Amino acid sequence: MTQVYLIRHGETEWNVARRIQGQTDSKLTSLGELQARQAGKRLKNMGITHIIASDLGRTRQTAQLLAEYCHIEPTFDSRLRELNMGILEQRRVDSLTPEEEQQRMLILDGTPNGRIPQGESLTELSTRMRAALEDCKKLPEGSRPVLVSHGIALGSLLGNVLGLPPYAERRLRLRNCSLSLVESQNSPWLAPGWIVEFAGDTQHLTAEALDEIQR
């Protein structure tokens, strides 16, 4: 059995400003740093052997904070990057024109092969995220890695494990620094291969590290 933990990065300045990030960098807020430290405290005694993160700035920051508690040097994998959101990156969500809002919805509403102009398709995202997960099986026996990635990217991966098409409507809420777990196993009562043990867990985040919606 292979266990792989999944963590979304901490809150960023653009999360607060409601800017579309995609593959553009935005620094963690002080709250985001606190979230990452609290996630690190949870992981500290869970036998984590590898921290593998997206190479974007916000995931690098999160991984480095997790590393302080797990005492593991992070490595970085560009396959774990967020969806490339093309022409809408850096835009505030409330500033989009009706046409641009329709383009944004192509990655949310179940449109087959949804893609923002000049961006990446959900199929491309799902394919690279699944490849990164499969490579965890190549780690030494007994490894327990954590993948540090992004909201849409991790939602796509979890949907893939559940057998959903890449363009399925988004119905998983993965808050900043939420924790998920997938396992590769062979159970007599579950489909063989990867299964979702839990998703979007925030029990390690105290009240001071939760946004207003979470409280």
Rank of each mutant, 00 (worst) to 15 (best):
E101L: 09
R92C: 15
Q90T: 15
G155T: 15
L147T: 01
E82W: 00
I48Q: 00
G155D: 11
G57T: 03
L65M: 12
G159K: 10
I52H: 03
A168M: 07
I48D: 00
T123I: 02
P166D: 10
R173H: 12
S149P: 01
M85Y: 03
T111V: 15
L154W: 09
R92H: 15
D55T: 09
M85K: 01
L83E: 00
R92S: 15
A131C: 12
A63T: 05
G57W: 02
S156N: 14
A53L: 06
R173S: 12
I152V: 10
N160G: 14
E89V: 11
S143Q: 00
D135F: 14
E68D: 12
T59M: 03
R175K: 13
L147N: 01
K41M: 15
P166C: 08
R91Q: 15
P117A: 13
R79C: 04
R144M: 01
R130Q: 14
M46Q: 04
I152R: 03
R144N: 00
L108G: 09
V93G: 14
N84Y: 08
L88I: 12
L181M: 11
G142S: 00
N176L: 04
G40P: 06
L65C: 13
M129P: 13
G110I: 09
L43I: 07
E169A: 10
S54A: 05
G159E: 12
N160F: 14
N160P: 14
S178W: 04
E82V: 02
G40C: 08
R175P: 08
R104W: 01
K138A: 15
D77N: 05
P98G: 08
E100A: 10
R115F: 09
A131G: 06
F76A: 02
R81P: 04
E141C: 06
Q118D: 15
K44E: 03
I51K: 03
T127E: 15
S149Q: 03
K41S: 15
A168L: 04
R79D: 04
L164E: 13
I51Y: 04
L164Q: 11
A168T: 05
N176H: 04
L133V: 06
L125C: 09
R60C: 05
R81V: 06
R42K: 06
E73I: 07
I51E: 02
E134C: 11
R144E: 01
P74W: 02
A168P: 01
S121Y: 02
T75G: 09
E100N: 07
L181Q: 09
L106M: 10
E73V: 13
L125K: 05
D77L: 02
Y167W: 07
I72H: 10
L174V: 03
A67I: 13
N160W: 14
E134L: 13
L164R: 09
